[in-house]
Amino acid sequence: MPSASRRGGPVHAASPTAAAQTASRSHLSGDSALASEVKRHVLAGERDAAVERFAILLANQQRRAARIAFQYLRDVHDADEAVQDAFLRVFTHIARYREDLPFEVWFTRILINRCLDVRKTRARRLRWTLPIEAAAPAPEPPDGSPSIEARLVSGARVQAIAAAVETLPERQRAVFILRHFGGHSPADVGRVLGLTESTVRVHLFRAIHRLRALLEREGP
C-alpha cells in the first residue's frame, strides 16, 4: 500500500487508521488547507508529495464520507464504490478546487453526485434483474464476536429509524442526511445541493416533521 508512512511522511500520516477514527468536525477546517497543499503539489508536478498529503486528507474525510454514502445508498458495496470514486475524482480534479470554498463542501458535492450515479445504475440494474439476496449482514470484527455497533444495528428501533429515513422523498432525505449525519450547516447543505438556504430549511422541516410522525408513533 502506498501509504504516507511508507513514504516517510509526517507523524500523523503514519497511522491513517487512527486519523480516520478521530476524524471529526474539528478536522474539517484544516482539510481545506490540506486540499490546497495537494493542489499546489499537483500543479508543481510533485506527485509523490501530493499523494502523501492526499493520504492524510483521505484518512480525515473517509469516515464521514462512508457514513453519508451509506445513509444515502443503504448498501455497503454501493457506498464503498461511491466513496472510492469520489476520492479518486477529487485527486484527479484537484486542480479545479477553489480555495474560497470549504473542502468538505466541494468533496461532499462530488460524493453526492457519485451516490446519485450509483443509485441510477442500481435502479437500471434492478429493472432487468431480480434481487437474489437480502442486504448483507453487518460485518463482524476479526475476532468473531459481534461489536457493540453490530448488536445495536440489529435492534428493532434501528430498523425503524432506517426505514423512516428511507421513506423520505429524495430531496428531503439528502438535506436531512447532510445536516444531521454529515454535520453541515444549512448554508453548506444548500451549497452542496445547489439550493437556497431557505429551501434547505423548508426541506429540513418537512423531513423532521415526517420522521417525528413516524417514529413517535412507534415509540422508543
Partner: peptide, 21 residues
C-alpha cells in the same frame, strides 16, 4: 443510531482496505 449503523458496516479494517485501494 445512523452513525453507529454506518460505523458497524464500515469497520476500521474495511476503511483501511478502501484507503489502500
Amino acid at each position: 443510531v445512523a452513525e453507529a449503523e454506518a460505523d458497524a458496516r464500515f469497520p476500521s479494517h474495511r476503511l483501511e482496505a478502501q484507503r489502500s485501494h
